[in-house]
Every structure is written in structure tokens, then in C-alpha cells.
Amino acid sequence: MNEEEMAKRLAGLRNEHRDLDAAIAALLDSGGPDQLQVARLKKRKLMLKDQIAFFEDYLTPDIIA
């Protein structure tokens, strides 16, 4: 996977993370949230956050001080 493909993947992960955030908020605002569904979405969101961090670390060059 080259850097361009990684950047595209990173953008897709960020979009999915943002969509999950909106879905969680909608479930919580609906009045009777399904706690199991909310927990699953939050777990997925955390997994996406880890993947985003991995790609960001890889794509951001280390600065030697």
C-alpha cells in the first residue's frame, strides 16, 4: 500500500468515525436508546480511532530534535 492509498484509507476512516459519532448521538437522542447497540457503535468507533492513529503515525514523518 503506497502513501496515496493510505491517505485515501485515512480519509475514509475519518468519515466513518464521524458517521458513527452522529449515529451514536442520534440513538442517544431518540429517547429509548438500545444500550447494546450504543456499546457496539462505541467499540467500533474506538477501533477506527486506533486505525486512524496508525495511519497518521505512518504518514507523518518523525522529526528528529
Rank of each mutant, 00 (worst) to 15 (best):
Q35H: 08
L27Y: 09
E56N: 05
E3A: 03
L59R: 01
H17M: 06
D34C: 12
R9T: 11
L41W: 09
L28H: 03
G31R: 08
A26D: 07
E56P: 11
F54E: 11
R18G: 11
N15H: 09
K45G: 01
R40A: 15
L10R: 04
D19L: 13
A53Q: 13
P61M: 06
F54W: 08
E16D: 07
L59M: 04
A25N: 07
A23W: 10
I64L: 14
D34T: 06
G31C: 06
L20N: 15
Q37N: 12
L10E: 02
Q35K: 09
K43F: 12
P61Q: 04
S30E: 08
A26R: 11
A39F: 04
T60I: 07
S30P: 03
A39R: 01
R9L: 07
A23H: 06
Q37F: 07
I63K: 00
A7H: 05
D21F: 09
I52D: 07
H17L: 05
Y58P: 01
A53N: 10
I24E: 00
K8I: 14
R40P: 04
D57H: 12
A25P: 03
F54T: 10
A53K: 09
Q51H: 08
G31W: 13
Y58H: 05
L48I: 04
P33K: 03
L28S: 04
I64N: 15
L20D: 13
K43C: 11
A39P: 03
A53R: 12
A11L: 09
R14Q: 10
S30K: 05
A26G: 08
V38M: 00
K8L: 13
L48M: 09
A22I: 14
E56Y: 03
R9D: 00
K42L: 13
L36T: 12
Q37S: 10
P61F: 06
M1I: 02
E56A: 10
D19I: 11
V38P: 15
R9W: 03
Q51W: 06
D29Y: 02
